[in-house]
Amino acid sequence: MQRTKLILQPLYKFLSLLPFEIMQAGFMQRAVIVLFLLTPLCAIMGTLVVQLRMAFFSDAIAHSAFTGVALGLILGVDPRFSLIFFGMLIGIAIMRLRRKGDMAMDTTIGIIFSTSVALGLAILSAKKGLGRDLPGFLYGDILAIDDGEVVVAMILSLIVWVFLAFCYNNLLFISLHDRLARVVGIKVDALESVFAMVLALIVGFSIRAVGILLVTSLLVIPAAAARNVSGSTFSLVWIAVGLSLFASMAGLATSVFVDFAAGPAIILWSSGMFCVSICFKKN
């Protein structure tokens, strides 16, 4: 714990120099750091999610958190970790079923989505008292992030940046033509599975910020808004990153000054920018 504080101290000190009184508060400093780490990654991953038409898939992973949380509480494991682990399992399961089965992707996801939500709710309703922790995961609370989670966010962002550096091009190629990607030597099945796991990782962690119900928006809306106004992949990615950072900071400010939940405020800012982007639509 002491070491964690030592790592984060310079960052906290830097943020406390900002000319806003609220930035002296530790919860605000942690929230800003996590949002700066998380939202650009969500935006870049979102460009792939939109391109690969996997918005429903990420929603399924998010909702599998019901079971992930329930299992964690029953097994005595920290639910913040159990939901990430269970989300990864669900991601892999969907990918395998899609490959092996004859069903369409959305049907496969629909079945697993409903089953995992139902299982989670069944466990929580059977074990009285477990459900009291659920609202925190449903709505998220970025202002309740602790030092340990800030460090986890740093490690997580490092993993995702490395993944994006090595795999972005191939995943984009798969989105354009799966079979052509196989012909040029891309290991499509393996790469899609890794993508599903990384997506589960980032969705699972983001639930702490905006909650199960809104986490997909963190991925999809900045990317969708950026698609409206960008003319290349490079501009798509960086516009999405810019929009997500702006929405997260504006959402955080709104939550402080208007006494509004931070998660919904961030998503509403993103939605507002999406509406504006429609007016400047290029494609």
Binding site: I44, V50, Q51, R53, L164, A165, F166, Y168, N169, N170, L172, F173, S175, L176, V184, R227, S230, G231, S232, T233, F234, S235, L236, V237, W238, K282, N283
Partner: peptide, 22 residues
């Protein structure tokens, strides 16, 4: 998706360069 902003140059670059397009 026909709305995708991926250009012809991007498409060719996907195989030509190791550096990610972003």
């Amino acid at each position: 998706d026909r709305q995708s902003p991926v250009t012809v140059l991007d498409f060719i670059a996907l195989r030509h360069q190791k550096k990610p397009l972003w």
